[in-house]
Each structure stands twice: as C-alpha cells, then as structure tokens.
Design a protein around this nucleic acid. Structure first.
Length: 303
DNA sequence: CGTTCAACCTGGGCGC
DNA sequence: TGCGCCCAGGTTGAAC
C-alpha cells in the first residue's frame, strides 16, 4: 500500500518520537506468522530499550528511526518497510492480532508516556536494526534513487533515458526514483499525458520534463492530502484518519469509468504482473500527433 | 538487458 | 453456506 505520500504521512504522525526514551519494546506473537525482523527480536529489544530516539526520517517508502544507544555508542537505525499493508498507529490498532511491534515511550516533563505500534495485516513488511553501514547498504544510492518529491528530469534521463522498459514499469524502479508505487505511477503518467507502455528511450526531453514535474507535483499534493485511502481497510494516518488524495485519482482503480479529460473509458492493462490504469485517448506516446487506437498490435510493420 | 513467474502473507469480494 | 478463484498500495530472486 504505502507509497511516498503515505509513508511521509506516517513519518509526520510519529514525529513526536524524537527526543523520547524507549521504555519498552515488544514484538508480539499474534495468531499470524511473524514478519521479517533482523536481527532476532530479542537482540533488537536488548539494543533499543533504554535508548533515546534522535530522529524520524523517511527514505523512499521506508521509515528510518535514528536511535542513540543507551551506552552512548554509535547510533543505530530502525528501518521499517511497510510494504503492502504495514502502518504505524498511535491509537487502537484495527486488529490486535496483527500488531508487529510495540514501542513504549517513557514519560518526560511535558509529555506523558505513550505507545506507538507497527501494524501489518498481510505481514509482508520488514523491520531491521542496522548501523550506519547497514543503512547505507539498505537505503544507499545503489538501492534508492533521488526522492520523488525533488526528482528532476535530468535525474530520470540519466537513469532511464536509454532504457527499453515501458515507462510505467521504469517509474516503479526505486533505484531510478524513490517513492513511486502503483497508484502514483498511474496518476503521474495520466497528468503528464504519457502512454504507460511507451519505451523510455522513445521519450523526448519535453516528455521527461512533464513526467518529472508531475511526479513532484502529484506526490506533494498527495502528501498535503495525507495520502490515498482505498477501500477502508489498510492505510490510514497514525491517528486513524483516512487520507484524502483518493478523491483526486483520475485513473487508478477507475476501469471502465469516464476519463475526466475526454469522457472515454479508463482502461486496465497488466504490466510486469501489476495493474496499470490509463486513458488511451489522453495518454499518448509523445511525438505522436493523434490519439492512439486502443491496442491492435497489427498495423505496426508498415511505417 | 528485459520480461515473466513465483514467493512472501492475509483477507475481501465475486461467481457458482 | 461454502468453495474456489481473483484481486490488493511492495519487493526479491530465479529462470528464460
């Protein structure tokens, strides 16, 4: 579920952790299979209980909790990947059985004791405790490209300009740009007017300009709306409110509905085993002067 | 290099 | 009611 806007909203929702001491940590053994935790939960608990949280950051779709070890040793990081259904909660969790981590914060002057939980329905999320070196290995530039809120056309061209991959698939590559997922890839390309099937190498400078600009604009707007909540299940803010950006979805999840641009039907196709939503009329290969016909691979050979 | 598939999990929704 | 199937915001690794 969570893409950059949702994870950024989570980060803000638990920002009050900064400066707080961890009084208690627990990895509850619910009725479902445990999620991936590295190193062993007992080791993580031993290292972080008693320590103080120095910062709460985000890189791409990951939350980074910077922790000063109790003994004043080197800082370590709790790296949380929510994947499909993970989220932080400061109120009652949707189900008690899917709470994966509980952090109890010590009271201090001006702040009562508090509890923060990581809840994950499907359990595909991960929690890792790493040092600075491990953080680099996990979230360094080899793994995560420039952040989606600030990515430039030059960044995209440098990484993807020569690629044969379909642009929608490429935008999901976190090494190219960090934070875009299936929802926002669709919304960005609709607003940029680009056919999701276009091979990257066939896009011109103007197209990359539009893609980069819409990436920043759409993600920033979604952050202001506190993300997209679909259905009622999984994603909500840390204090249990739904996001609002789903109201501004133009194509995602709207198969068969009228395109807000031309009134035609929004289409769903599958790329890289994932749904892609787009309007074949409003989204064209750049440089192609007129709307593409709805996919008939036939008449290609001619040109 | 790029695509396809399976896997990791739980749960909702649909057709029969 | 129940069963089987498809779907879901993500990521990884193996096979072709």
């Amino acid at each position: 579920m969570p893409e950059l806007p949702e994870v950024e909203t989570m980060r803000r929702g638990i920002g009050f952790l900064v400066g707080r001491r961890i009084a208690r940590a627990e990895f509850p053994r619910g009725s479902v299979r445990p999620i991936l935790v590295e190193p062993r939960p007992a080791t993580v608990i031993r290292k972080i209980v008693g320590a103080t949280i120095e910062r709460v950051d985000r890189r791409g779709k990951r939350i980074l909790i910077g922790i000063a070890t109790a003994a004043g040793g080197p800082r370590c990081w709790l790296v949380v990947e929510p994947r499909m259904t993970g989220r932080f909660v400061t109120t009652a969790p949707p189900t008690p059985g899917h709470v994966r981590l509980v952090l109890g914060l010590a009271a201090r002057p001006g702040a009562a004791a508090a509890t923060v939980m990581f809840w994950d329905l499907r359990g595909l999320g991960t929690i890792r405790l790493v040092d600075d070196c491990g953080l680099e290995r996990l979230c360094g530039p080899e793994k995560l490209g420039p952040d989606g809120l600030t990515v430039t056309a030059a960044d995209l061209v440098a990484c993807l300009g020569g690629s044969r991959r379909a642009v929608k698939v490429a935008l999901l590559d976190q090494r190219a740009v960090a934070g875009i997922g299936n929802i926002y890839a669709a919304e960005i390309l609709f607003r940029a007017g680009i056919d999701p099937r276009s091979p990257c190498r066939r896009l011109g400078a103007a197209a990359w300009d539009r893609i980069a600009a819409e990436t920043r604009r759409v993600l920033a707007a979604a952050v202001r709306c506190e993300g997209s909540s679909i259905g009622d299940e999984t994603y909500k803010t840390a204090d249990d409110r739904p996001g609002r950006f789903q109201r501004q979805h133009r194509v995602y999840g709207r198969t068969g509905e009228a395109c807000t641009g031309c009134g035609g039907a929004v289409q769903r196709i599958v790329q890289a085993q994932r749904s892609t939503f787009f309007c074949p009329h409003c989204q064209r290969h750049p440089g192609c002067g007129r709307p593409r016909r709805p996919q008939l691979p036939a008449t290609r050979r001619m040109a």
